[in-house]
Design a protein around this nucleic acid. Structure first.
Lengths: 231, 231
DNA sequence: GTCTATACCAAGATAGAC
DNA sequence: GTCTATCTTGGTATAGAC
């Protein structure tokens, strides 16, 4: 029998699994397209083309372009959070340097997949308030976490742990973004080492030591001072 | 005589001065609009509206939207270059920390005018190859300059001055961008001090010292190691 | 030299056949 | 559930009056 099935048989239609696969295809395609063309020129048509589905099908899975970017970014943030949390649980390194290293490494690994894409996501996309909220919240969490870390650890010598935490978090995130995506890319191992060195020295050196912060504040620096220009 | 002038009199038409003023109005308006709406939503209509001229007039001064952004960015870069060069000439501070401080301060001052705008310019705009070239060149110059600085100064202890220079330049630029534009803005003096402390300690601490870089490289870290996720 | 009105185009999103 | 064809929108840029 060539057509062995009877019409009444349910035929086991892949309702969810297949759909989920298509969503994933779209996401992957979008990642490449955004990475290559940027947000504005990363059109839905291109995404659909790359995913090898029609534009109509695409809109059956996502209501609009921003939703695609949003999910992409959500996954990235979640991955980042998971990475840090898992590190935190698995190992409890003793030296502060090792903690910083774990942090830096997690961020680097989370960016290795597609650095260009990440730049687009952080830079071009987040105009929707919902997205912005998500990013802000995520960053705040990391600052809080880092600040606690700084306060808990005896080696740490900083005046204001909050400011230091913000500096550390921003530095890691931004530098990794920038230097991994850069054309003349730096070796990631080297980048990791340098970043770790910089942050560790910053945070553990006693104030007043080499390059300490304890200098007289406000020596009359006014906005628009030397070197400033109208523009 | 109410109409005292004869038709033949040249009437001293403000040919250049007035035009230059209008260009400046457009630029100022564009700065605000880009800062508020971002590049894509910063439409020429809005810019014209804000400059209180018609859209038609706007296009008599600039051929297209990108040209406006380009000039905005050019002015910023030039201002930054000038600031650093003037510092370099005016004062020759002895301690390395003071040099770094001058550098950091120049960047901060150059961003105080309109931090939001700067983010847009660096992030959204540079799709045109000409612009991109300009930015790249500018950054490369700064890296070269910084690298020479590192090599000249005896206090400096880094293995690879090129990598260190890139790290320093990127850090200053990115962190200042980010933290000055941030909502819960940090006091600029504090930011300056912390940044200076971080960079100075990084660059002057002996390798192998506190948080030194001289650890065994490559301990088998592979891409996709622990903490990585598909995404 | 400034304006209004509009052409033109690209991209997002939808309708409706299959 | 997927497609093609098309509508809609909004933004850049221009034409032509004044």
């Amino acid at each position: 029998m060539t057509t062995g099935r009877r019409g009444l048989q349910p035929r086991k239609q892949p309702r969810q699994a297949r759909a989920e696969l298509t969503r994933q295809r779209i996401l992957t395609a979008a990642a490449h397209v955004f990475a290559e063309y940027g947000y504005a020129a990363g059109t839905t048509n291109r995404i659909a083309e790359r995913a090898r589905i029609s534009i109509g099908s695409l809109y059956q899975y996502y209501p609009n372009k921003d939703a695609i970017l949003a999910e992409l970014l959500t996954r990235h943030l979640d991955a980042g959070g998971d990475a840090i949390r898992s590190r935190q649980n698995e190992e409890q390194p003793d030296s502060f340097e090792e903690i910083i290293r774990g942090f830096v490494r997690a961020v680097i690994e989370n960016h290795l997949d597609d650095p260009q894409l990440l730049r687009v996501m952080m830079e071009h996309g987040p105009r929707s308030p919902e997205l912005f909220e998500k990013i802000t919240r995520h960053e705040r969490d990391r600052v809080v976490y880092t600040q606690e870390l700084l306060e808990r650890h005896p080696e740490v010598r900083v005046e204001d742990t909050h400011v230091a935490a913000r500096l550390v978090v921003s530095t890691v995130e931004l530098i990794v973004h920038q230097l991994i995506a850069a054309p003349g890319s730096i070796d990631t191992t080297r980048l990791e080492n340098e970043l770790v060195a910089m942050l560790t020295r910053y945070v553990t050196a006693a104030p007043g030591g080499a390059g300490g912060v304890e200098r007289p504040r406000d020596e009359g620096r006014a906005p628009g001072g030397p070197g400033a220009r109208p523009s």
